[in-house]
Design a protein around this nucleic acid. Structure first.
Lengths: 129, 129
DNA sequence: ATTTGTACTTACCAAAAGGAGAGCGTCACA
DNA sequence: TGTGACGCTCTCCTTTTGGTAAGTACAAAT
């Protein structure tokens, strides 16, 4: 038990920034985009939109802008007449995807455990003291 | 490049559940609580509250309930007169903390890169075509 | 001339998140 | 008798989030 998983010896300012960063990065759409771009490489706006399926244009644009701002994706505009814009991950974006890999794996492995816990919590008792 | 980081060969139903799970688990307060409980072990409600500092009672209660439901924390009520309730991580909770470790490390390591990217994105151009 | 496709942006609106503050029950302590 | 601590819960109220629908520019196709 010498080294707990999250670095405990970090100064609070760094931690605040980390919290902030995680707060931004760990949202639904960002993770979806990250995953899809990681799997499929470079995609256009509408391709991305269709891949996710349920995202609105507004949110996709917003998510992509944030990711671009944070240096996670590169946006390439081809100055052709029906606009063509392609998005792909930067090295930073790819490394973030890799970092999240552990969480994906955890989620996959522990899906059943969580569902069972929920069943136990919700079902039998149905009320709590 | 044989195996990309997130498992790409997973069936869509599992992926949907994973998304859901991550969506629940990857929120600000859950991650904070997870981290603190991982570092400090078993804590009471107000200790947790003070540790986080900025969380409202409402959100702390809500977060802890969700985590309990998902099998991430154990809530122990001591039937003493000023109420005493202690929270600690389950094995599942600890494993989730471990899984998030990669993200914490990524955030710490790439904080500067993200800030620089933001500076580049925001500052010089200040508008975009 | 009208339609189509692309990648947005903007305005508007509904829903959800989340904070502030009060209340509750009970016992110790003053 | 009154006050405070604890771990909540409940009721507002504000902020944020996110969806829908419309508009934009421009050239190729009809």
């Amino acid at each position: 038990m010498a080294a707990p998983h999250p670095p405990a010896d970090v100064d609070p300012r760094v931690e605040a920034l980390v919290h902030d960063l995680i707060g931004r990065v760990a949202d639904k759409w960002t993770m979806l985009v990250l995953e899809i771009l990681e799997e499929r490489g470079e995609l256009r706006f509408t391709e991305l939109s269709r891949s996710i399926g349920t995202i609105s244009q507004k949110m996709l644009t917003q998510t992509l802008r944030h990711m671009e701002r944070d240096g996670l994706v590169i946006r390439t505009v081809h100055p052709v007449v029906p606009p063509k814009v392609e998005y792909r991950l930067t090295a930073l974006g790819q490394s973030l995807g890799a970092a999240f890999c552990g969480v994906w794996i955890w989620a996959e492995q522990n899906l059943a455990a969580v569902e069972e816990a929920r069943g136990t919590f919700d079902g039998p008792l149905a009320s709590r003291g």
